[in-house]
Nucleic acid binder design. Structure first.
Length: 812
RNA sequence: GCCCGGGUGGCGGAAUUGGUAUACGCGCAAGACUUAAAAUCUUGUGGUCGAAAGGCUGUGAGAGUUCGAGUCUCUCUCCGGGCACCA
């Protein structure tokens, strides 16, 4: 019988469909595990290779843990709001409400065609009113806490998508979605106060079992720096300039101050002849676009003709204005210490300002003593030219300087973050309406809980206006309503939420997806949370993953969720690149379609090949030729099964070699699955099947051992293994079998191979019974003619016997 | 510029964490089967010298620690990703 994967896969998918309750998570019980995938946005293009990689990983885990007797929650849902769907809708001139459900159906069909064991009884969709009712509800919780607020602010606006964007959505001055250059607009926008959680978002990272690189990205994004704010009096005492620094120890090295062009003093501070040139500089800079300013690396600046007084030395310090100082960060003014900061150094060099070294780092003395050298030093060195603080500079010494400044009222401690509040309004149609009513008298009034959800109306013209208003604004009978407070005529908020809103809490809803009274029942949340394993791409490092953590913490403070953090363990699947080793993209023409692969090799081959290509978490190029190896492996398993069916009645004596290999494989496959090392688990199974084929030829293969192998393979290739299982005469599902346990007895070697080395170079290997004592091994090996030959004329200085594996003779 | 990853055969990648480098797979070569091809099976496959036995050499480059380094330390270099004038 031939391996007819088409027929087999169809057959088993049908069987699973009818018995899908087998994958249904129980609400309570021992040994829970929550295995979550980042749910997809159901695009019209359908599943791509990258989705399948992550979902196969989680499917292997889920099937494995079910076989281990765990109560597994492995759900799937749809993140269907957002710009991609809406832009597509505009192109097709169809309302997303009509085609999103079709896309979802298609996605679901595709997922089932790959044999993923999702618990479909827990399916959710962020665009359904029963779901987004709770998204709106949570927004109102934040509103009531003052965490959601409206304010007019300069924001990044995408002229093509015609909406404001969060900082996280702007990459190098371009819209993350459509790559258009963004512009700055002043718009009244809803914000979520994520900055209030900066410290906790940083600190709680410690508890998470996440890839270090993702944690680092989040740390950098929050960007905490602690330092001092120091006041510099203007020479004429008319005002003072507050600068922020993390390096008070370099205070004596200040040779100039720099203000950002937007600093309030910049336009007022110029003196005498410098007035005109300063004014010209400011007008020039402020007329440039944000992007132009960001892109240009040219050092520009202007002297204002004004001076400040150094708080410690009383020296006159010239005040400059330059665009290299950012007004959005710190105080918008810095102290220039060219000897100890690269940027200050570049500035000083360009404008011929003095450079004074005041800190002499010990570790970098060489660099420091060179001509014109600058040192951003590691560790702390000596402070020169200061009677007050000479000697070694430690962190304590820095603290002392800071303390002194604070006493003299020149300085105060402060902490700054790069993180900004999350801009939460989108002037677009396809999102959750923000549940606020704007009343002339009462201001922003929350929609009453009983009136939730505020349903998104189905309209024909949802084209964004570009005026800063949502297309919903035109819908008078939807917009006009009554103020819940004073009952006066009022208008609805017409902005919608960003696409990230629904995904901030979907993993909570999965635990209790059809609850009509609460977003999820607390006892169910207590049972399932946190998510034990969360699998998805690294591209969400500072978007979804940061937003969701923030959102979760808000709910935690309200005692609505039981854990501080949502996702305990995070695993990033590496990106699958095209055969040309480049990112897959339509424009490059290197996209691999899963449908073709399934047609030619079957879903089991596709699943296994994606797992076999390389380490789960690293990027790897696709090679269509490579899948043949997996296909051959599955074929071999299938043919072997055919032969066993015919011959299994033979009484077979136990084969030691096979048992050792089998037990080794059981151990390795189990451990590798738990460590996401699917590629090496598969190699191990390949070795085992080769041995089994050999043993079958020698009539030494017992059917039950082959069945053990099937159980190991089942999580990876569920269709073919289920089919073989049935062919071998079982009328139960392989799903219901326990994962095999290995017997330690077979893992203990009765023999050991000793490698003999001379001066670390391998010369010989010999096999000894396991209990052979060291002395005996040593003399036997020394007597061996080969070793003798190599030792001729040399004296053994030392003999090393390591790990019962290697004996090394060191000679002179 | 700064912060993370990473460089191992022709290719994708293994290596029990300091102990036989190149498992497993692809590709390639030779052979078997076939009228032939495909598929399948068997054998071989880092480089180099050698008829062979065997030797030398070999994990981006250079140094160091060690009886022993792909693995640890330092310097450099190249590739991928992220942040980007964050004081």
């Amino acid at each position: 019988m031939k391996y007819n994967f088409k027929q087999i896969e169809k057959k088993w998918q049908k069987i699973w469909e009818s018995k899908s309750l087998d994958w249904k998570a129980k609400d309570f019980g021992k040994n829970k595990i929550y295995i979550l995938d980042m749910f997809p946005y159901p695009s019209g293009d359908g599943l791509h290779i990258g989705h399948i990689e992550g979902y196969t990983g989680s499917d292997i885990l889920s099937r494995y843990f079910r076989m281990r007797g765990y109560n597994v929650l492995h759900p799937m849902g749809w993140d269907a709001f957002g710009l991609p769907a809406e832009n597509y809708a505009l192109k097709m001139k169809k309302n997303p409400m009509t085609f999103v459900p079709k896309n979802i159906e298609n996605f679901k069909k595709q997922l089932k065609s790959i044999g993923f064991s999702f618990d479909w009884t827990h399916e959710i969709n962020t665009t359904e009113p029963e779901y987004y009712k709770w998204t709106q509800w949570m927004f109102l919780k934040m509103f009531n806490l003052g965490l959601a607020y409206e304010s007019e602010a300069p924001i990044n606006f995408c002229p093509s998508c015609k909406t404001g964007l969060a900082r996280e959505e702007v990459i190098n001055g371009r819209c993350d979605r459509c790559k258009s250059e963004t512009e700055i607009r002043y718009l009244k926008q809803w914000h979520l106060k994520i900055t209030k959680y900066s410290d906790r978002l940083l600190d709680d990272l410690k508890e998470l079992n996440w890839p270090e690189s993702i944690k680092e990205l989040q740390r950098n994004w929050v960007g905490k720096s602690a330092g001092y704010e120091i006041d510099f009096q203007l020479e004429d005492k008319s005002n003072k300039i507050k600068v922020f620094t993390t390096r008070v120890d370099t205070l004596y090295g200040v040779t100039f101050l720099v203000l950002a062009p937007e600093h309030p003093l910049s336009s007022k501070i110029a003196r005498g002849d410098y007035y005109y040139i300063t004014d010209k500089y400011l007008r020039n800079i402020l007329s440039k676009s944000e992007r132009d300013r960001m892109m240009s690396r040219e050092i520009t600046g202007v002297f204002t003709g004004n001076y400040a007084i150094h708080p410690m030395t009383g020296r006159r310090i010239p005040i400059w204005i330059s665009e290299y100082v950012l007004h959005q960060y710190g105080t918008g003014a810095i102290m220039g210490v060219p000897a100890h900061d690269k940027r200050d150094y570049d500035f000083a060099t360009k404008f011929h300002l003095p450079i004074e070294k005041v800190v002499q780092p010990e570790n970098t003395f060489e660099k420091f003593s060179g001509e014109n050298s600058v040192s951003v030093y590691e560790g702390f060195g000596k402070l020169k030219d200061s009677d007050e603080f000479s000697g070694l500079l430690s962190e304590d010494a820095i603290e002392q300087i800071g303390q002194k400044l604070i006493e003299k009222k020149f300085a105060q401690k402060n902490v700054y973050y790069k993180l900004r509040d999350w801009i939460f309004s989108r002037q677009r149609y396809w999102g959750e309406p923000i549940p606020i009513i704007k009343c002339q008298k009462c201001g922003n009034v929350p929609v009453q809980e009983k009136d939730l959800p505020v349903k998104l109306p189905k309209i024909t013209n949802f084209r964004p206006t570009g005026t800063g208003e949502s297309p919903l604004k035109k819908l008078k009978n939807w917009v006009n309503t009554k103020c819940p407070k004073c009952k006066c005529p009022a208008e609805r908020e017409t902005n919608t939420m960003p696409q990230w809103a629904g995904s901030c809490w979907y993993y909570l809803r999965f635990t209790d997806p059809s609850n009509k009274k609460e977003f999820a029942n607390l006892s169910k949340l207590k049972y399932w949370l946190p998510v034990d394993v969360y699998i998805g791409g690294a591209e969400h490092a500072v978007l979804h993953l940061l937003y969701a953590r923030f959102w979760h913490k808000v709910l935690y403070d309200l005692k609505l969720v039981p854990t501080k953090e949502p996702f305990f363990k995070l695993v990033n699947q590496g990106m699958i690149l095209g055969e040309d080793n480049e990112k897959m993209s339509k424009s490059r023409g290197n996209v691999v379609s899963p449908d073709n692969i399934i047609k030619n090799f079957g879903a089991d081959s596709l699943r296994m090949y994606e797992m076999f290509m390389g380490p789960f978490d690293s990027a790897k190029p696709w090679m269509t030729d490579g899948i043949k190896g997996i296909y051959r492996f599955l074929n071999n398993a299938f043919t072997l099964a055919n032969k066993i069916t015919r011959t299994h009645k033979h009484q077979i004596e136990e084969d030691k070699e096979l048992l050792v290999a089998l037990n080794k494989t059981i151990k390795k496959v189990g451990e590798d699955i738990e460590n996401y090392k699917f590629n090496t688990a598969i190699s191990q199974m390949m070795e085992l099947i080769d041995l089994m084929r050999k043993k079958l030829g020698e009539k030494k293969l017992d059917k039950k051992h082959f069945e053990t192998f099937l159980k190991l393979l089942f999580p990876f290739a569920p269709h073919i293994t289920s089919e073989i299982w049935e062919q071998l005469g079982h009328n139960t599902l392989l799903d219901k079998e326990n994962f095999p346990e290995y017997n330690k007895k077979y893992l203990i070697n009765e023999e050991k191979i000793i490698i003999a080395q001379i001066n670390g170079k391998r010369r010989l290997d010999l096999t000894f019974p396991a209990e052979t004592p060291f002395e005996e091994i040593k003399t036997t090996i020394q007597k061996h003619p080969k070793i003798k030959a190599h030792l001729k004329g040399k004296r053994i200085k030392k003999t090393i016997f390591a790990g019962d594996k290697i004996i090394n003779f060191v000679t002179n």
